[in-house]
Nucleic acid binder design. Structure first.
Length: 153
DNA sequence: GCCAACGTTGGC
DNA sequence: GCCAACGTTGGC
């Protein structure tokens, strides 16, 4: 089982939206970056766990834990004419963009602020979300990093 | 709003 | 293949 960190802007879709979703599940749609696409398509497996991270907000940080409940499949929004994430270059016969489904395991009673992660940067090693200029919306987390991050909650 | 970092596009 | 221009991300 692998571990990940996935980012979302709470103004668009936050941990509370996931908690309110049917079966507390959602399709992780709209990723339009090839590196992240490759992880969705090739590396994320059913059963993997991920930190749910809020970005571009007043208090960025980790707000919950989610589980991958469906491995990579073609992102349907790429084929929806008129959808914000529609990509006319994505041919259904050769899909360009992928998604997974995630389910909320639990929100963190005490979210882990980005500032807290930074304060423990040394112990967390090369945690991708702490890298300067990091913009990837999906990043891998090692088992050791996962454990150490959780210990900060 | 500012700015650094990065990805993508397109001319050559 | 190079590289400048541009758009986006995301913290502050």
């Amino acid at each position: 089982m692998k571990h990940w960190l996935i980012k979302s802007e709470p103004a668009t879709f936050g941990i509370e939206d996931l908690a309110a979703a049917p079966h507390r599940r959602t399709g992780w749609y709209g990723v339009r970056n090839y590196q992240a696409r490759n992880m969705l398509r090739d590396e994320m497996d059913k059963g993997d766990l991920a930190f749910f991270y809020h970005s571009s907000c007043a208090a960025p940080g980790i707000y919950g834990i989610v589980k991958v409940v469906k491995a990579g499949y073609p992102d349907p929004t790429a084929f929806e004419r008129g959808h914000d994430d529609y990509d006319p270059a994505s041919d259904p016969a050769v899909p360009r963009w992928f998604a997974v489904d995630v389910e909320l395991v639990r929100p963190l009673a005490q979210p882990i602020a980005l500032a807290t992660l930074k304060a423990h940067a040394r112990a967390l090693g090369d945690l991708a979300v702490l890298r300067k200029g990091n913009r990837l919306s999906i990043t891998p987390v090692t088992a050791e990093q996962w454990r150490r991050v959780l210990a900060l909650a």
